[in-house]
Computed example of a mutant assay.
Amino acid sequence: MAAQSASKVVLKSTTKMSLNEHFTNMLKNKQPMPVNSQATMQQQLQMENTPSVQAALKLKQTLSYLGVL
């Protein structure tokens, strides 16, 4: 087996801004996403109607009725 020589890789910087500065600036300049209340309500209603959520709500109601919760 031949011995491999270790080579050093040097990457030239393409920007004068560090990653930390870059992402800090991104967070500072982040625009808030507009909230569409009608779409949010529709998503909530769809979620409430899924079988797993219905089962959990029914279980909670039953446990509450029995005095466990």
Rank of each mutant, 00 (worst) to 15 (best):
M33Q: 11
L59Q: 09
A2T: 08
L11Y: 07
Q43M: 07
Q46W: 00
M17N: 12
K60F: 05
A55P: 00
T15C: 08
K12I: 10
L57N: 03
Q61N: 11
K8G: 06
S5M: 07
S18N: 15
M26Y: 02
E21G: 10
Q44P: 01
L59D: 13
L45Y: 03
M41N: 11
T50D: 03
L11G: 04
H22M: 15
A6G: 11
S18W: 06
Q43C: 01
F23M: 08
K58P: 00
L27Q: 13
K28G: 05
K58N: 04
Q42G: 08
V9I: 11
V35T: 12
N25Y: 06
Q46Y: 00
A55V: 04
N25A: 11
A6E: 15
M41W: 01
S18T: 13
M17L: 09
H22W: 09
H22N: 15
V9C: 12
A6D: 09
S37C: 12
Q38P: 01
H22E: 07
M41Q: 07
L63Q: 07
T15K: 14
M41K: 09
S7C: 13
P32E: 06
L63N: 07
A6C: 15
Q38N: 15
Q42I: 06
M33L: 15
Q46G: 00
Q38I: 11
S18P: 03
L45I: 08
Q38V: 10
M33P: 02
K12C: 08
Q61L: 12
Q54H: 02
P34E: 03
V35K: 02
S13E: 14
Q43S: 03
M17C: 14
M47H: 03
T24M: 10
S52R: 02
L59W: 04
T15E: 05
S7D: 14
M33K: 04
L59S: 12
T62K: 15
K30W: 02
F23P: 00
V35N: 03
L45C: 14
T62S: 15
K12E: 07
V10L: 13
N36F: 05
N36E: 15
V9Q: 10
T14N: 10
E21Q: 14
M26H: 13
S5F: 08
L57A: 02
P32V: 13
A55D: 06
K30F: 05
T15R: 08
Q54Y: 00
P34V: 07
K28F: 10
K60P: 01
L59Y: 06
P34T: 04
A6K: 14
L63W: 05
V10A: 13
M41V: 08
L19C: 06
Q4Y: 15
T40I: 06
Q61R: 09
M33S: 06
